[in-house]
Every structure is written in C-alpha cells, then in structure tokens.
Design a protein around this nucleic acid. Structure first.
Length: 423
RNA sequence: AGAGAGUUGGGUGAGUGGCUGAAACCAACAGUUUGCUAAACUGUCGUACGGGUUAUACUGUACCGGGGGUUCGAAUCCCCCACUCUCUGCCA
C-alpha cells in the first residue's frame, strides 16, 4: 500500500510512475486520496478537541466527587451529554472517511521504479540479457509431457485420480529429481548467506493482506473454509509475514531468508493449449529467497538476487534470458521485477522460472515492517523476493534440453544429489 | 473436542472504576567515576495519527490480545471472538 504522505510529497513522480501501468483513472484516484486525507485530518482534529474537552470535564467530576461536592458534580455531568453526541458524530464521519481512503489505497498498485519501461503487455518487456547456448536437438525430439511418459517419471493420470488435473505424481527418478533440486537450491542459498526457514503452508487472512495477495487475488488461492486459512501460492507469503509488526535494528539488515515450500494456485480460468504438462500446475515446489533491506540498499540487493538466480541456471547448464518487466506486465505490489526464462528446446519456447522483485515499502507499509536506528523514528524497510527456483519448468527444460534418443542426461551439479547421472 | 486458568510496555511483573501511558525490577542506550574491564551512581528509554516548528522544543488524541457495551470517567465491570497454558480425551 502506498503511503499518503509519499503521494503528497512526490505527486508528479507517483503520477508518472503509475501511468506506466496504463491506469487511465489514476490521476483522479490520486486526487481523491489527497482530498480524503485532508478530510480525515480535519475530522481527527475536531474529534481530538472534543475528546480533550470531555476528558477535562470527567477529571473535574472526579475531583469534585472526592471533595464531596455531589451537587456540583451532577451539574457538570449534564454538560457531557452534548459533547458525547458531537463526538459520536465526528467519530462516525472519521471512520467512514478512513474506510473510504483505505479502500481507495488498496486499489493503487506500487509505483514502478524509474528504469521500468512503459508498456501494456509481455510484448513490451525489455530483454536485459541472454546467456547460454540453445541446444540443437535431434530429429524426433520430444516435449517433456511425452518424455515423462516414455520414461515413466511423472504421472498426471494418477494425480487426476488422487486430486485432479494439475496435481502430478512424481515417481522413481522423477521424484528423486524433485528432491535433488530442492536440496541443491537450499544448499546454494545457504552459501550465499540465506537463513533457512520452514514456514507453515497455510496462512491466515492477515498474512494474505500483509504481502498483498488479499484483497486483490482472493480467487487465486485455495481456502480451507472450516479454519479460515489460505493455502500459500508462494513461500513469499509466510516468510515475509514472519516480519509483520516487527521493528528491527538497523544493524540486523539485510535479513536474508530462504525456504522451500509446496505452492498452491487455483489458476482459475488460465488454462489453455500452451499450458500442457508441467508448464502450469495447481501444486508445485519452489525454493524462495526473501530479503529485508535498508531503503538505500534494496536495488543493489535486487541485482544481487538476480545474479544469484542466474548463477543457479548456469550451474544447471540451461540457456536463459533476463527480462525487465514493463509497467503493464509487472505484479501489483512490485516496483521493479526481473523475470528469468529458460529455453525449453522440446517445446521451442521460453519458460518463466523465476521472478525477482523489489517491493520497496509497498509490502512493508501493510506489514508494518520497520527498521530503527539509535533514537530515531522507525522507518519502513524494503522487502524483496525471488524464486530460486520454481521446480516444474526447470524440470521441463532439463528433460527437454538434455534428451538423447537413448536417455536423458542430468546436469553435473545434480549427480551427487541424485545418485544417478541419466534417466 | 470437554473443563479450568490466563493474555499489561523489549523481558519479568504490579495494578479491581478517576491523580495510571501505566509501579518496580531486568535488559538497552547516554553520561559520571575508574589505569583497563567490572561495579556503583545519574539520566534516557513505546507506537500511531493530528496540531505546531526551517528543524527541534512543545502539545492533543488513541492504544494494557481483538471487537462491542455499561459509565461523566474503564487496563480495571459486562458480552462476543482469537490465542496461550494446565488437566481429561484423541492422535502422526
């Protein structure tokens, strides 16, 4: 959520930034926000004055009672009825205005950072970099959905029987590849100073609001009705929420966490011809890195995270490219996002395997996540996160790119984790 | 799941209707003393939103798990909810 104060003080920057997201009504909304905030302040000033008056009278009554001056106390008491009525009116108004303001602020996405290109869709994303060699495969190469059947390592039909479409069953070497990748990713993060956590994969409503999944993406999450808990769409939710309502010391920054969790997404209405096999699932595994930084350090951290993720892709010997997302394609809460895509040679297309974002203070404002230096006032921290990495499309690319007519070779870094070197 | 007891500031913990934003102790921070460390002593030591100021100072209101109620006045009384602990039951 954007800070009203920030909108006020940086009006033009905020306006221009938000316009990169193609929001036609945004100027109107910003004006309304400022107007409502003025109204809010006016109400509060009025309410505070009335309340102060009321408090003074109550105090006086107390003193009079103590001195045994019952009659005088009773006389003053009558004055309070009027003030009470006034307070109630102003308070109702105040609350109403605050709610309107909050509702409006929830509709405003984060302001894209300067370097973010304007644009409407994925077409307008900027290719920052491309690395690795796109393999030329033999005649008769297969997409991964055929490979997994051929080698019997992932079974979608069994998943349908147990749960439904989009819930694959990994078997034998397929299951071990999952486990190997998770361990490999966690071990690598550890070497870069990330602290490993294993969070709950069901979260409450407050957590959903904290990182911005609610109220925006309500329909994208599975919900356990009886206990009012959401299944997490990403480990970002529980891990970042560990720091909800926390004031950390400046010296504790940056905080770097890593965690593996399964992720659950309803993906309502997003199924089509190009999402076969592992390309889009309801349940998948992901290792997520999260950083909490000082505001001055967040863009350096974003680069560091991007470099780290690229390092993983290099070790896995996968050709990849890095995109800087345009305003129109970027997530609601992000100020800048890099997407990493690997080339999957069986389908001949790029697949998004990681998204690394800086949220600046947008999440921190909702989370009330702040840092403090010495005797100074607490200030909002910056939060960042990134997939490092999401498994299914990595698996798809490994299978497709390394296939031979006689088997599939596994990347060298995984051999010790797998206990085998090909499928 | 049933019964009972709880939830107060960074921590321990006092406080049963007004002078309590909240005792005391601990921790933390600053200073004095000290050859160094330690100890002792002194002081500071919550958050949010307003007003005010170039910025401080100063100042108003709210906050004692969350929400509602009673009252001129609530940490304190009443109701609802959440969570924690103990016992019983169940269980990987």
């Amino acid at each position: 959520m954007l800070l009203v104060q920030h909108i006020r003080e940086n009006y033009h920057q905020v306006l221009l930034g938000l316009q990169k997201r193609n929001l036609p009504q945004v100027e109107n909304t910003l004006q309304q926000v400022l107007a409502l905030d003025d109204k809010r302040k006016a109400c509060q000033t009025q309410r505070d004055q009335l309340q102060a008056e009321s408090n003074a009278i109550s105090k006086e009554i107390g003193l009079l009672m103590k001195e045994g001056k019952q009659a005088e106390a009773t006389a003053i008491r009558e004055k309070t009825a009027l003030i009470k009525g006034q307070i109630k009116d102003v308070e109702d108004e105040h609350e109403h205005v605050e709610q309107q303001l909050k509702a409006l602020l929830y509709t405003l996405p984060n302001v894209p950072q300067e370097a973010v290109p304007a644009g409407k869709s994925a077409e307008d994303n900027e290719v920052v970099k491309q690395e690795g060699v796109i393999p030329t495969l033999f005649e008769g190469k297969l997409p991964h959905w055929d490979l997994i059947k051929k080698y019997d390592i992932i079974d979608f039909d069994l998943g349908v029987k147990i749960a439904g479409a989009g819930f694959p069953v990994y078997k034998g070497k397929g299951a071990r590849l999952q486990r190997a990748l998770i361990n490999f990713f966690l071990d690598q993060a550890q070497t870069q100073g990330y602290f490993e956590v294993q969070p709950p994969i069901l979260v409450n409503e407050d957590s959903g609001y904290g990182t911005g999944q609610l109220p925006d993406k309500e329909g994208q999450m599975y919900f356990a009705q009886a206990d009012q808990l959401y299944l997490i769409p990403t480990a970002e939710v529980p891990i970042t929420n560990l720091y909800r309502d926390v004031i950390v010391n400046r010296s504790d920054l940056p905080i770097k966490n890593v965690g593996y969790t399964p992720c659950f997404r309803r993906e309502a209405g997003s199924w089509g011809a190009h999402v076969r096999g592992l390309n889009r699932l309801h349940q998948f595994d992901k290792v997520e890195i999260v950083q909490i930084t000082h505001p001055d350090a967040s863009y350096a951290a974003l680069e560091e995270m991007s470099t780290y993720v690229q390092g993983l892709l290099k070790m896995l010997e996968l050709p990849y490219r890095v995109l800087r997302l345009c305003g129109g394609d970027m997530g609601f809460t992000s100020a800048m996002t890099y997407d990493m895509e690997v080339y999957s040679a069986g389908q001949d297309r790029w697949l998004e395997v990681s998204s690394v974002s800086n949220f600046e203070t947008y999440q921190a404002n909702r989370l009330k996540l702040r840092w403090k230096e010495e005797d100074k006032k607490p200030q909002l921290a910056h939060t960042l996160n990134g997939s490092a990495l999401a498994l299914p499309r990595i698996v798809a690319a490994i299978l497709e790119n390394n296939q031979t007519p006689h088997g599939i070779k596994m990347p060298k870094v995984l051999h010790s984790y797998l206990g085998f070197d090909s499928i």
